[in-house]
Design a protein around this nucleic acid. Structure first.
Lengths: 340, 340
DNA sequence: CTGTTAGCGCGTTCAT
DNA sequence: ATGAACGCGCTAACAG
């Protein structure tokens, strides 16, 4: 059922020229007489010619494709990052392959291999779970790669991440300044860099303020339910520990915080009067839940754009060698709303 | 900086055989002696060979890629559909190009052309704004195409959509059965099929129940803010009309409904005591807002899976011609929560 | 300015 | 069972 593609050969035959001439005419490079160029251009439009980027990529060794790997599209954080990447990519005639790992390191590596097979010019991985194991593989392929919010940066692997440590420090300073003392933390069980950093920031901030970092619960996942379940456990532990709920709950991210709000509500506790709650990311819905969440606004879209720009630099760097920063740190800002 | 790819020629040289033999050995087709097959397979692993799907696609005329077009990644509805598509695609060794239109029909067509240039085997478009204009273009290219939640179905264009009309009917029956009478509707201004259908269902349901469909507001967009702004207008109009708020607000989707909840709260109105609210889609967060939303659960993930399966059928249909449904209708289910 | 030749990496005939 | 030759659609290097 598929129609045969019209190729430059077809045009060449119709125009009575050779196919390289058509190629030159269409991409505007090389010397072609204005007359034949116009004739060819018009002919191409008439018969509906679309150049095969596959064939072109094979010879130029440049596919104008990049691979993007995220843990899950459904996560509002990652989908906004991806949107930033895609927009910036298209501005540069690039298309993106998108794949989700479902937080499985094995799948992540498998996807990277697939992308290599598809001859992508570069790869962006958001919240990688693999880390070091890329190094050896990359050495072989030489594919430029940018890690977003991952653990580490090696030679050849460039990294962009948000300063999560500082983010939670801002949140904690705010909470402590408001007089909250028994501040519990809900972490995300997944061993990503962000999780480690944020938890450490909570711990250190408590120490610095001479408050005991006594109450910490690992959520089963980083989503709404994870936050609700963790909160249930947390309240039980608080009861055992203090015979009272905590003053505030500092959450790994917004989705978990929203789950926490729901659980507190279910247990008849008012926010922020009984228990304050904070999130992280500033996803769109945080402004519309009850109460609106105090959180850290990460420049998600901008992070995607930045990652793509860095990748493009790396791709072109094959020829023109300039200085490229190994790691870029982005800063978020505290957004105070009525949950604290 | 990019390393040279290792090709089957390299393996052939090392193994002392010809490249076609390597090709046959690696893809397991054609007769090759077990001995050389093993030797070649092992060699391929050792030197880290990854077949070039680009080159393969050029000769087989099958790229094992599909293009996916969505209005916006950031929309939780579309990102879940996309996730379903991607998972089903990968199960069949397919990769997906993902692009977002930002709700711009011109961009949608441009993206489709790009995909054609990339020789995708098929295209899935979610919530297309273009409709009929695809027909002519498709005729030329013959690319199999599946429209998700779009207006129409033509020859060659297959369509999967959710029965939005029935969905809102279920919501309305529920509201009317609960005794709500003055039921207002908030629509999404964008002229997509879903919007038209849902609004019509509200209108008809009111008529059938002998209630005047008096209060309708178009939101500026389908997101949280859009719902909040529309609700503000709506309450003002209700005041002018009835000197009272409506009994219930039926919203185009969940995000707008969540915006509505926030605005009602801001105006000191209780849900559902003062004003009931309903959504549509059953996105993840609906269960965790206050109050949890009554809504219609669309099988988002399943719709993505189904679309991909249909597309695969169409792709293979080039050779084996069987019966393929032109349109598939999916049914959602009413989920009753405490917002009504 | 244009045509000829060559090759990107692979699969698919045909021979042998 | 294997190798030689060819082509997918395109661009690059040279001719002329």
């Amino acid at each position: 059922m598929t129609k045969k593609r019209v190729s430059i050969k077809d045009i060449a035959r119709l125009a009575g020229v050779s196919s390289p001439t058509v190629s030159r005419a269409l991409q505007g490079r090389g010397r072609v007489s204005t007359l034949t160029r116009e004739r060819i251009t018009q002919l191409a439009n008439e018969i509906g010619y679309t150049p095969s980027l596959v064939a072109r990529g094979l010879v130029t060794q440049r596919s104008y494709c990049v691979g993007v790997v995220v843990p899950s599209f459904a996560d509002p954080f990652h989908s906004q990052v991806a949107q930033g990447i895609e927009e910036e990519a298209r501005r540069h005639q690039y298309s993106i392959f998108l794949a989700n790992t479902d937080v499985d390191p094995a799948r992540e590596l498998e996807i990277a291999r697939t992308f290599h097979g598809r001859q992508v010019d570069g790869i962006i991985v958001s919240s990688s779970r693999v880390g070091n194991r890329y190094a050896a593989w990359l050495q072989e392929t030489g594919i430029p790669m940018v890690l977003l919010n991952a653990h580490v940066a090696f030679d050849q692997i460039h990294s962009i991440y948000h300063d999560d440590y500082q983010g939670i420090c801002l949140v904690m300073q705010h909470l402590i300044a408001r007089g909250y003392r028994r501040i519990a933390y809900i972490s995300n069980a997944r061993g990503v860099r962000a999780s480690v950093e944020r938890q450490r920031a909570w711990f250190d901030s408590m120490q610095v303020a001479a408050l005991p970092p006594e109450l910490l619960v690992n959520g089963p996942n980083g989503r709404f339910h994870g936050g609700a379940i963790a909160t249930k456990q947390l309240l039980a532990q608080a009861q055992a520990l203090w015979q009272a709920p905590p003053d505030a709950i500092c959450c790994y991210n917004d989705t978990m915080a929203i789950g926490a709000l729901a659980e507190l509500r279910a247990q008849g506790l008012k926010t922020p009067t009984d228990v304050a709650v904070t999130g992280f990311d500033d996803i769109d819905v945080t402004e519309f839940v009850d109460p609106p969440l105090t959180t850290i606004r990460q420049p998600r879209h901008q992070m995607g754009v930045q990652a793509m720009q860095l990748l493009l630099t790396l791709i072109d760097d094959r020829t023109a060698n300039g200085y490229v920063p190994r790691t870029t740190v982005m800063l978020g800002e505290l957004v105070v709303r009525s949950s604290t």
